[in-house]
Nucleic acid binder design. Structure first.
Lengths: 346, 346
DNA sequence: CTGAAAGCGCTAACAG
DNA sequence: CTGTTAGCGCTTTCAG
C-alpha cells in the first residue's frame, strides 16, 4: 500500500546517508564513495524511487528538456527529421517537447517558441523554418535552425546544414550529365527556406554549365500540386527534364505527364527529392536525392547540447552531411541525344 | 538590461495586488474582480512575464503535460497519428512530451513509460501498441491505448478505437462485392495490435460471406516486404484479390505482380490501408481505406483529459470514427466474372 | 472577492 | 568525501 511516491529523503533514510548524497549519486557527481553510491542505488531500486523533474528544474534552473518546433505534416521528410531529432535528443540525455506549427502561419513559430520557453526547455530546435521577418522575442536559450539562417535574436543561434543546396545541385547535374540542355525546377512554397535552398542549388548547377534558366514551376509539396504542374507542362515539348523539390510532387508530375501522353523517362526525365524508399516500387522507379536526415539531426543536436552545456567553449566543427543521389528509372538521356545513337538518325 | 526573468511577485507588485491574485488570474479561477484581472494582465504583458511551469508543477502536483509513446518510423500512418495527437493535446491546453520506441523492442514501451512518468506527465498515450505480456510498472496516471486492449496496470487505462477492424472488413467486403471468390491478406508484423485488428476484420468479412480463408502473407509494413510477398504470390494464378494491411506494402506488392506479368487490376485486385493521398497518383491509383487519424486522436485525447481532470466522473461516450473506403484504380471484378459479360463468352 | 503563511522535492552554496 | 541550511517560483490552505 504505497501511501505516496517516495522522495529523495526516503531514499536517504533507507541508505543511511543525507539527501545531498542521494542527489550526488543521481547526478553522477564526483566525490561519493563507492560504498555510499551502492547503498543509494540499492535503496532507490528497492523503493521504486523516481526523481521529480519539476523539483529538479526549479532548484537547478535547468530542465534537461529540449523543445522542437516542427511542422505538423505527415510527409516523409518532416516526419523523418522529427524521428531522428527525437532519437538524437534522447541519446544526449534530454527529454523532448514538441509543438507543431501549421505551415504558412508566420506568427506560428514565434508563438511556438514562446510556449516552449514557458514550458521550460534548455534549448530549442526549429525543424523546418519558414521565411519571416525578425521576430522580437526574448529567447534566453540556444536555438538551432535546421537548414536556415537564423531569424531570431537569441542568446545563441546555431545552424546545422541539411545539405539542401548540394543535393539540389547534384540532382540538377545528374540531369545535365545525361545530356539535357537545361532542367526545369518544380519548387515548394516560396516562404520555406527548404524551397530557397533547393532553388539556389539548382541555379548554381545551371550557371556552372552555362545552361539557360527556365521559369520556376510552383508547388506546395503535395502530389496534387505536382500533378497540376505536370498538366501545365505537358504540352511544352521543349521540356525534357524536371527536378522536383519533393518526391511526392515528382510523383504527381509524372502522373500528369503520362496521362498527357508523354513518356517518362523517354520523353521527359524527372528527379525527386527526399529519398522515400517506397518510390523505388512505382513505375518508373523514382530517381531522387536522399536527404541526410539522421546526420543532420545528430550534428544539430550535438551543437545545441554543446551550446547549452559549455556555453563558453568554441562550438565544435559540424560535419558536412553526405550527398547521396539515388538513380532509378525516371531519368534517361533526352530524346535528341538518344536519336543520335540510333541507326536511322542522319 | 533585464537582470533576470520577471516572477509573479513582480507582476503582483506592478499590479498592486497579492501574488495569490496573480495566480488566480493566470489560472482562470473565479472570484477575481474584473478590475484586478485587467491590471494583472496588463502588468504581466508589460513585464513580458512568463509563468514558470516547473514551479507550478512542483506546487500543484500537476504538470499540464501529456506524454506520447510513439513508434519512431516516418511512415505515413504513424506520422499522421502523431501530428493529430499533438494538435489534440495542444487544443486541450496541454504540452506534449514524445518518446519513440523502436519497433520490436518488447521492453521499449515500459521503459518509455517510466521515462515519461519521471519527466512529469499527467497522462500518457501509447500510440501504436505492440503485443507484450503484462508489464509490472507503477503507473499512477491514466494511460490511453490507441487501438489496443490495455496491457498495463494503471490507475486508469483507456482505449480509443481506430476502427481498424471495421476498415479491414470494409476493404475485404469491397473485393468480395466485386465478385472475387476470396481475398488474400498481406499482414504486418504479428506482434502489433494493428496487425491483429486487421486480420480479424478480414476474417470476419470472409466468414460472413462463407468465403474460404487462405493462408496469411507476411510483411513488415515496408514496400520491400510487399514486393517480396508479391514475387512469391505471382505464380499462383488462383489468387485474384489481395488486401494489404498498409499502402506501402500494397505498392510493393503491385510492383512485383506487374514485373511478373500479372496485370493489376485486370488479373489481380489490390487494396491498401491508410489512405496516403500520394498513392492516388501512381499507376494504378491505389484503392485503399482511409484511417481516421484525426478523429481517433481527438476522441482519445478527450477521454484522457477527462480521466485526468474529472477522475470520478463517468467516462464520456467515445464516438465511433468513420469508415471510409477510397475506391481508385487498383481494384476490379475478377477475370472470370468479367468474361461472363463479354460477347464471346458462352 | 482578497491576502498571509507554509510548503511542493530538489539542488546550491558552504561548511565540516 | 559528506552534511547543513536555504531557497528555486509557484500554489495551497485558511483567514479575512
Amino acid at each position: 500500500m504505497a501511501s505516496s511516491a517516495p522522495r529523495s529523503a526516503d531514499v536517504a533514510r533507507l541508505a543511511g546517508v543525507s539527501r545531498k548524497t542521494v542527489s550526488r549519486v543521481l547526478n553522477d557527481e564526483p566525490y561519493v564513495s563507492d560504498e555510499a553510491r551502492r547503498r543509494v542505488l540499492a535503496a532507490a531500486g528497492e523503493l521504486g524511487y523516481r526523481l521529480n523533474h519539476a523539483a529538479r528544474a526549479l532548484a537547478s534552473g535547468r530542465t534537461r528538456s529540449l523543445g522542437v518546433v516542427a511542422l505538423g505534416t505527415a510527409g516523409y521528410g518532416t516526419a523523418s527529421l522529427l524521428v531522428h531529432i527525437e532519437q538524437a535528443v534522447r541519446d544526449a540525455g534530454y527529454a523532448l517537447r514538441v509543438i507543431n506549427t501549421p505551415d504558412g502561419d508566420p506568427e506560428g513559430i514565434a508563438g511556438a517558441l514562446a510556449a516552449l520557453l514557458e514550458q521550460g526547455v534548455d534549448g530549442v530546435v526549429v525543424s523546418e523554418p519558414v521565411v519571416q521577418g525578425e521576430v522580437p522575442l526574448r529567447v534566453d536559450v540556444p536555438v538551432l535552425f535546421l537548414g536556415a539562417p537564423p531569424s531570431f535574436t537569441a542568446t545563441r543561434t546555431l545552424t546545422a546544414s541539411v545539405a539542401a543546396h548540394e543535393l539540389a545541385r547534384a540532382a540538377t547535374e545528374h540531369l545535365l550529365d545525361l545530356g539535357h540542355h537545361t532542367v526545369h525546377h518544380l519548387a515548394g512554397p516560396r516562404h520555406w527556406y527548404a524551397t530557397k535552398d533547393r532553388i539556389q542549388g539548382w541555379q548554381a548547377a545551371l550557371a556552372a554549365r552555362g545552361a539557360h534558366e527556365p521559369p520556376l514551376l510552383n508547388g506546395d509539396w503535395s502530389a496534387a500540386s505536382g500533378y497540376a504542374a505536370g498538366r501545365a507542362l505537358a504540352s511544352d515539348t521543349s521540356v525534357t527534364a524536371v527536378f522536383a523539390a519533393g518526391d511526392e510532387m515528382a510523383i504527381g508530375l509524372i502522373h500528369a505527364l503520362r496521362e498527357a501522353g508523354r513518356r517518362v523517362p523517354e520523353d521527359i526525365s524527372v528527379v525527386g527529392f527526399d529519398g522515400n524508399p517506397v518510390f523505388a516500387y512505382v513505375s518508373p522507379p523514382l530517381t531522387t536525392v536522399r536527404q541526410p536526415f539522421a546526420a543532420a539531426a545528430r550534428e544539430g543536436i550535438r551543437l545545441l547540447v554543446h551550446a547549452i552545456e559549455k556555453p563558453d567553449d568554441e562550438l565544435p566543427q559540424a560535419d558536412e552531411p553526405p550527398v547521396e543521389l539515388v538513380v532509378r528509372g525516371s531519368t534517361a538521356p533526352p530524346p535528341s541525344h538518344r536519336d543520335r545513337l540510333l541507326p536511322h538518325s542522319r
